[in-house]
Amino acid sequence: MSEERRTVLADAAIEVLAASGMRGLTHRAVDRAAGLPAGTTSAYLRTRSALLTALVRRLVARDQAELQEAGERMPFPRTPAELTDALEGLTVARLTGEGRVRSLARYACALESVRDPELREILVPRENAGRELARAFLAAHGVPDPEVRTRSLLACVDGLVLDHLPTGTPVPRDALEGLVAAALRR
């Protein structure tokens, strides 16, 4: 099985899911979105479960690569305002353009994972340079249990993205500032 072809199909499936929701995610719709002959998706990913699993694996891989790169290129934040700047950039990326498409697909998959333990396991938050940057910032500021605070902070940021996703409106900076201030409380 061609890994390149599976990647093309998974990327097309992300687009279909974001545009049409779970009901619209069909093998035929993925074939059309990928510009491939009818039956191609079924040949590579026979079942709906296989299609969803490939989609989620690709979604997580793309998200992880993006967060890793962002964390590596970003200077270490020294102040709460600098951490807020970084979170603001993340929320903008997740609400616009290709990030919006992946966010729509990610949340649909998160809901689907309630009934599918395999998807749930794939979607578990992973380590990356972006997460480590937030954790290191909180630790440097003397926050007790920076790991727990980092998970809480990033979950709240994710919630703000989810809240603003339907309209695509920016997450208000003061909301992010409030989350950073809460994460820093001792």
Results as ranks from 00 to 15, higher is better:
Ala183Asn: 02
Pro117Ala: 04
Gly99Asn: 07
Gly99Phe: 13
Pro117Glu: 02
Val56Phe: 00
Leu133Val: 09
Arg100Glu: 08
Leu153Phe: 05
Leu160His: 03
Val114Lys: 02
Ala33Trp: 01
Leu36Gln: 08
Val114Asp: 03
Ala182Met: 13
Cys156Ala: 15
Leu55Pro: 03
Gly89Gln: 11
Arg126Ser: 00
Asp85Ser: 13
Val30Thr: 08
Leu9Cys: 04
Arg149Met: 10
Ala33Gly: 07
Met22Pro: 08
Met22Asp: 13
Arg78Lys: 14
Leu52Phe: 04
Arg186Tyr: 06
Leu9Gln: 01
Pro37Thr: 03
Gln68Met: 13
Val16Lys: 01
Ser42Arg: 14
Arg58Val: 04
Leu176Phe: 05
Thr96Met: 13
Arg5Met: 15
His164Trp: 07
Ala105Asn: 00
Gly24Phe: 00
Thr169Ser: 13
Cys109Leu: 02
Arg186Gln: 12
Tyr107Asn: 04
Ala43Tyr: 15
Ser20Phe: 07
Ala19Ser: 12
Leu162Pro: 06
Arg106Ile: 01
Ser152Ala: 14
Glu3Pro: 11
Asp63Arg: 01
Glu177Gly: 14
Thr79Pro: 00
Ser113Tyr: 00
Cys156Tyr: 11
Arg48Glu: 09
Leu55His: 02
Arg6Ile: 14
Gly71Trp: 12
Leu160Cys: 08
Leu83Asp: 03
Ala86Cys: 08
Arg46Ala: 15
Leu17Tyr: 04
Arg73Ser: 13
Asp31Phe: 04
Glu3Val: 12
Pro170Trp: 06
Thr96Arg: 15
Pro172Leu: 04
Leu176His: 07
Arg151Ala: 14
Val157Asp: 05
Glu177Trp: 11
Pro146Thr: 05
Ala81Pro: 07
Leu17Trp: 01
Leu153Gly: 04
Leu95Arg: 00
Val101Leu: 08
Arg5Glu: 13
